[in-house]
Nucleic acid binder design. Structure first.
Length: 904
RNA sequence: GCAGGAGUAGCGAAGUGGUCAAACGCGAGGGACUCAAGAUCCCUUCCCUUAGUGGGUUCAGAGGUUCGAAUCCUCUCUCCUGCACCA
């Protein structure tokens, strides 16, 4: 048909009108305010439906609140701080073709000329250019969803206004003693000379890299020490020998007063973990066959050769515990099985060969699953023969896991007998550390390289700044804040409580990245989750800062003390900041008017980090009346059943939405297909259905707008209509968006359908008159563009976005009537059933249907309606009621004394 | 491993002590309309039975509490998510 709905045209039209008339620019007024926020997006490419979900759900709710008479502030900003933007920039600068292609694709979505695309991407070598390019486009994409955002207040986390605010926040933290400095291990790249986050490491998103703590066991070797790295200090009682790799070059290094022996690679890593280490030179003597004194157990252990020892894992020296380490057991057995001749060839003396033969496995840990020599057991059952067998890796993990969780130390472990492995591990480690028989070394959990190919190691940073969530009093305050915050759904509270308990010290500054300089140590940048805990407060004043062209230096501590905390005399503040008093007053008033945040709508994944930090921040910086009032959560977005990812090609961007469906369809489909906490699965085919549904709504409303005429409508439909209004409103007020759209769209469509079925034209038009105007307003939150368009067809002035919410009329709701209708409905269905059967069996059309009902139900049934609905003559009687019981006796055979349907 | 969450019809899900074979949407099948397709409308869609309104077995599995449980308790299994400097 020619009049197919062109959503994009309608949407564009209304978006422009909203913008032009500035109806969503909120300013303090006499109405009750509602300050609604949702997290700002990080710029790393196009916005997709995941971003679309948070803002659309928020927008629907904001639009509802606006129609309910609230003065709603719904702002938005952009997150640019941290390392990713910098990483992108660096990669492009370095000529990383993968990144360049990716970004050419992103930019290509907006810019057609290929040359221009290349040029733009090239300019991304400057990170600011990335920000400058994407932000206006992201704003455009958000606008295309029809968001009722006050864009005047927009900023990025890199803007000076935000930086000044964050600096002020950290000054408060410092005053309260929430910032501390400590040593801290980080993933580090010596080539790049900087700490590495997940984004900086190759494949770290799919195979995460962790920091692992090794215990360095110190074996006395003359006056020197051989240091062996182990993850299992609790197994020292099972040690039988030491492993080195004859292929590896070992070095000697001065460590404090001592001399340590280790692989060169080990030294290179340890260098970044302790300042007291210094290389002397290559080890001159041979270690093979010699003995060293083991820590803790103080036994002499022989140094033996192996192939599995990797110079680049730990120190390149490994202690051997054949009872619980499959590698050790296999390597030991391999060695023992060599003929005396072969051993001689390696360089062992006769007595050494004897000693080697005599080495026996010492059982130390007992588990129900593997008995007391786990490694021996798994090696025997899998028949692993050589230390090169790849299965050993897995066996090691299995044995380790079982031992750790279910193992107990046995009688060979002296004082530790009977202790759980879990406990013994910590205890023995600490004792050895205390006796200087051991030290600590950190390693990445896997071999990893940075994006530029440099090796990743662990470095200990000496002066890392932390936010100390365990600072006295803070957790209590945060808990109080949490307790006063309304949570949607409420069950997330348990997770918050759990997270609060777990929060300890969080490094809050980095050496690299975009962001706010750490106020007390400008070599550092405030880490990007720590700088985004109070940013929503800036919405309350940012447009005024801009309007009055305030400069960075004016937004000083004094400024925020006054505007954010009401501290200081205005006169003084004006003098110090060189801001005029009325301006200051306006800023302060604006802040006071909009605060607190009434609701924050976010992704559940943000709970353990962003939202928890946010509550801590608010609890510490602001008095109780400025604490956030409510937090609501939305679920994940996936596409065609699986997680969205570029490699799968199933990322649905907001540009796609615009091209294929339009905002209203997206908003409706999104909210109607899952409840707010659920996972939203974008499915192309269902999106198409959603589109058809909205087209139907539009067509119906259009018909209603043109045909409607005042008149009488039967009470049942008035009642049903009001029930829908009531239900939809109640659900929406609780942010149950799915139920709301189900009522506003599907229930209403059904109601219209039913009306068309039973009403004559005159009544139908009156029915249109009844519902039209309210129905448009009912759908306005979810489908604002469609609603505006219809609103104009109705000949209404102004925007439906600013119209009042269609309240139901309780007095018009007659539940009895609706129930009766429902009863009739099921009866009709039953009659049709029976008729179908009758037709089949008797092969002739029956004459008449008799319905027998219980006396109290009698008034419910109208023979006339039934007749009409069924399409043949229906008579209704009540059973066992002399008055209503088949008075004519013409109903044929005697009826049983129970209700039923009979056809003749 | 720790923590949080989830497991209901082909699918998405609603239902949190009785009114539940289970709303609503999608999908599937049948029918009406149509030259046809689409749209729309009607019916069916756990199993059995049937001139219908009947019966049976169900809500991951196993126990338990209760007159009564998908809903409360215990255990088990499976899946998802998070576990810190990373946005």
């Amino acid at each position: 048909m020619g009049n197919e709905l062109d959503f994009s045209k309608i949407e564009k039209k209304w978006q422009q009108r909203w913008e032009k008339t500035r109806i969503f620019e909120a300013e303090p007024d006499g109405k009750k305010k509602f300050f609604f926020t949702t997290p700002y997006p990080y710029i790393s490419g196009s916005l997709h439906v995941g971003h679309g979900r948070a803002v659309s759900e928020s927008d629907i709710f904001c639009r509802y609140l606006r129609m309910k008479g609230y003065n709603v502030l719904y702002p938005m900003a952009f997150h640019i701080t941290g390392t990713p933007v910098l990483g992108i920039s660096a990669a492009i600068k370095a000529g990383d073709t993968e990144k360049i292609n990716l970004y050419e694709e992103y930019v290509g979505a907006y810019v057609t000329s290929k040359d221009k695309v290349k040029k733009i991407v090239k300019s991304f070598a400057n990170p600011q250019k990335i920000v400058d390019f994407f932000i206006p486009r992201m704003m455009e994409e958000y606008k295309q969803l029809g968001l009722s955002v006050d864009w005047r207040r927009q900023f990025t986390s890199g803007d000076m206004e935000h930086q000044q605010m964050v600096s002020w926040q950290f000054e408060q933290y410092r005053k309260k003693g929430y910032l501390i400095k400590e040593r801290y291990p980080v993933l580090y790249c010596p080539d790049d000379e900087s700490a590495m986050g997940e984004d900086d490491i190759q494949d770290a998103d799919s195979e995460p890299v962790e920091k692992i703590e090794f215990t360095l066991l110190k074996f006395s070797f003359g006056k020197k020490f051989l240091v062996a790295a182990t993850l299992r200090p609790e197994t020292v009682f099972g040690q039988t020998n030491l492993w080195i790799n004859p292929e590896v070059s070992y070095i000697e290094a001065e460590v404090g007063e001592e001399i340590w022996i280790m692989s060169e690679e080990g030294y290179e890593k340890l260098r970044y973990q302790r300042s007291d280490i210094k290389k002397i030179g290559y080890l001159k003597e041979s270690l093979l066959g010699k003995k060293a004194l083991a820590p803790m157990i103080h036994r002499e252990l022989m140094i033996l050769p192996s192939r599995f020892v990797d110079a680049d894992v730990g120190t390149g020296i490994v202690t051997s515990v054949p009872s619980d380490a499959p590698y050790d057991y296999v390597a030991l057995r391999e060695l023992q099985r060599l003929s005396a001749e072969q051993k001689k060839k390696i360089g062992f003396t006769l007595s050494q060969i004897e000693d080697i033969e005599e080495i026996e496995v010492i059982p130390i840990i007992t588990t129900a699953k593997y008995g007391d020599k786990a490694a021996v057991k798994v090696v025997e059952t899998t028949q692993v023969i050589t230390q090169d067998d790849p299965r050993l890796e897995k066996l090691t993990q299995e044995v380790y896991k079982e031992g750790y969780h279910a193992g107990t130390l046995n009688e060979n472990c002296e004082a530790y007998e009977g202790m759980l492995v879990k406990e013994a591990k910590e205890k023995m480690k600490h004792i050895m550390l205390a006796k200087h028989e051991a030290a600590i070394m950190y390693e990445p959990s896997r071999k990893a390289v940075s994006r530029s190919g440099g090796k990743i190691i662990v470095a200990l940073l000496d002066n890392q700044w932390f936010i100390d969530f365990n600072a006295p009093g803070w957790k209590e305050k945060a808990a109080e804040c949490l307790q006063k915050t309304k949570l949607l759904p409420e069950r997330t509270r348990a997770q918050f409580i759990d997270t609060f308990a777990w929060l300890d010290k969080r490094p809050c500054a980095r050496k690299r990245g975009l962001g706010t300089p750490f106020p007390f140590d400008t070599n550092w940048i405030i880490e990007s989750l720590s700088d985004s805990t109070l940013y929503m407060t800036l919405y309350t004043i940012n447009h005024l800062i801009r309007k009055n062209k305030l400069k960075r230096e004016q937004l000083s501590t004094v400024f925020f003390d006054y505007v954010y905390a009401g501290k200081g005399a205005m006169k003084e503040v004006a003098k110090k900041t060189k801001i005029k008093e009325p301006v200051l007053l306006e800023l302060r008033k604006s802040f006071e008017y909009w605060m607190p945040v009434d609701q924050r709508h976010t992704f559940t994944l943000h709970l353990p980090n962003h939202l928890s930090f946010m509550l801590f921040a608010f609890a510490s910086i602001f008095p109780e009346n400025y604490w956030p009032r409510a937090i609501s959560f939305h679920g994940l977005v996936v596409s065609e059943g699986s997680k969205m990812s570029k490699s799968k090609g199933n990322v649905i961007t907001l540009l796609d939405i615009k091209k294929k469906y339009g905002a209203d369809v997206f908003r409706f489909y999104l909210t109607n297909s899952t409840n707010i906490e659920g996972t939203f699965d974008w499915r192309e085919s269902e999106a198409q259905n959603a589109k058809a549904t909205i087209e139907r709504v539009y067509a119906t409303l259009q018909e209603a707008a043109t045909m409607r005429k005042k008149g009488a409508v039967r009470p049942l439909f008035i009642s049903r209509f009001n029930s829908i209004l009531k239900n939809a409103g109640e659900k929406l007020s609780q942010m149950k968006l799915r139920e709301y759209t189900a009522a506003a769209i599907f229930d209403m469509l059904r109601l219209v359908k039913d009306a068309k079925l039973v009403m004559e034209k005159k009544e139908l038009y009156a029915f249109y008159y009844l519902i039209g105007n309210s129905w448009v307003r009912l759908i306005a939150p979810v489908c604002p563009h469609t609603a505006e368009e219809v609103w104009s067809i109705f000949g209404k002035n102004g925007f439906v976005s600013l119209a009042s919410w269609p309240e139901h009329d309780e007095g018009q709701i007659d539940m009895k009537l609706e129930q009766a209708e429902h009863a009739v409905d099921t009866t009709v269905t039953d009659i049709l059933h029976v008729l179908a059967l009758v037709k089949e069996k008797q092969r002739k059309n029956p004459e008449k249907v008799y319905v027998y009902v219980l006396p109290h139900e009698y008034d419910t049934y109208s023979a006339k309606i039934l007749t009409k609905r069924v399409g043949m003559s229906v008579e209704v009687y009540a059973v066992n009621d002399p008055k209503k019981h088949d008075p004519t006796g013409k109903a044929g055979k005697a009826r049983p004394g129970k209700p039923g349907i009979y056809v003749e």
